[in-house]
Design a protein around this nucleic acid. Structure first.
Lengths: 247, 247
DNA sequence: CGTTCATTTGAGCCGACTCAAAATGGGTGG
DNA sequence: CCACCCATTTTGAGTCGGCTCAAATGAACG
């Protein structure tokens, strides 16, 4: 998704500055009082860059840090017993990863980089220390988890209610909106995931996804060349997707 | 689901004793050190009894307390713009409700009693005070939300991967297990929800759900009389449902 | 330029949906 | 206690969307 967000690099080593990070308003510190953001920042480490296909978290691995994607995109998924992938969603910069790991202390699903990816991490023991003295951060963590839960419920509802084209339309509309919020052009992007990934995310087959793209193209709503997408009629997509979902 | 759990009533007014509650091991205090459980208990209030069909929480209402069902069962759902219900799941005793409300401070979906229902509540301001000084409770709240998230992801994955009978089988197997964990007979129960509710929960039509029950009955795996269910071959259901899901 | 993988397109089939009607059960009032 | 009524559930017939299998096209990389 051509996400290489060139955030302002402060300079030296593994030290991270949330202050100058372009993602700040979307990330944890953006919701904290300045004091607390400062405290949090001192606990943030920068993870090393990952190449496409590399694992950011592995299911079953001990959750030793809270991870947030800084640049690039990733795929959240589980591997079923039959060896197929269930794609839970795609991660964009500023989004936390592996939150379901709070359930057991071990991650519940895999997260793989789809593009060169960098990320930030807050070691678990430091997070716990911070939670002891930062009321805003306590609220923020609950908010973050609540939001993830809300989103999961919403997505589940859609799966049950919407047909193939509606699901693809909503996928595009959602992506569009998230890109916009991060300052990327919302109507002109390159997908970082394959049709198969999209299909597994939406509970469809890759052929059906492809046909949906074909339909949208024929209708003149979309320009599609492999993974390059131009949205020509966002309104039409939004209409097909149905309103932002439940009340 | 004949859930009237006759928990030991301590005696007087609105005071609640988690200590003697039959649900303690399944509920929040069960995961806390004794000291913290004691502290939490002092903040717990008892909600008044609700008749079937009454709302425990309404979407959009301000989340002013953390709620846990004490006896009875309930249906979590959203109302779509078209006026249809998306059923997210069913709540059994010991389960918290409305956690997605942490996202915005307002509940994201409705919860209605399916049977006479009683519940406990921890007012939000008291919860925040407790979180300040109880590290175990902090962990527990994150665990609770993480678990809800994990479950939502799991359910979503199943919707995408499993066919009608598989979904119904899993629904029954899951219910069975949850009943067992609460000390109810796992293979002989009365459903508190309609076929339509089950259907909307599983992303099917009520006819399809009914046909699935019919199939299981014909196969000799189930005895079905309206809402009275006897599971004769739990193994067969479990097999059809697939393993407990993803790895 | 050739190889390889991803995507598109086509034909046929099956499962779940829709519409419709019958049966069962639960609850109420006489 | 019984008869009736209503809602829920079951069962049936026909249709359609998305799946499967298969082949062709297109894009990316060395």
């Amino acid at each position: 998704m051509n996400i290489r967000s060139e955030e302002i690099q402060t300079g030296a080593h593994a030290c991270v500055s949330c202050r100058n990070c372009a993602l700040k308003p979307l990330c944890l510190p953006g919701h904290l009082p300045v004091q607390e953001a400062r405290a949090l920042e001192s606990a943030v480490e920068r993870g090393r860059q990952l190449a496409p296909g590399m694992a950011l978290v592995r299911a079953g691995a001990s959750m030793d840090a809270l991870l947030v994607v800084r640049s690039g995109s990733a795929k959240r998924f589980s591997v079923t017993l039959e060896g197929t992938e269930q794609v839970h969603g795609f991660v964009l910069p500023g989004e936390a990863v592996g939150l379901e790991g709070f359930a057991t202390g071990r991650y519940g699903c895999e997260v793989n980089a789809l593009e060169p990816l960098s990320y930030c991490r807050v070691p678990m023991h430091k997070l716990e220390q911070l939670l002891e003295r930062l009321p805003g951060l306590r609220r923020e963590m609950l908010r973050l988890l609540g939001q993830a839960l809300d989103e999961a419920l919403r997505l589940r509802g859609e799966l049950a209610e919407t047909d193939a084209r509606g699901r693809v339309a909503r996928f595009l509309a959602d992506l569009s909106e998230r890109l916009a919020r991060r300052g990327f052009p919302p109507y002109d992007f390159r997908l970082s995931m394959s049709r198969a990934d999209i299909a597994r995310h939406l509970g469809l087959t890759l052929e059906t996804v492809s046909r949906a793209f074909g339909t949208f193209k024929r209708e003149g709503w979309l320009r599609v060349r492999a993974r390059d997408i131009s949205v020509l009629r966002p309104d039409a997509l939004a209409a097909l997707a149905g309103a932002p979902n439940c009340a």
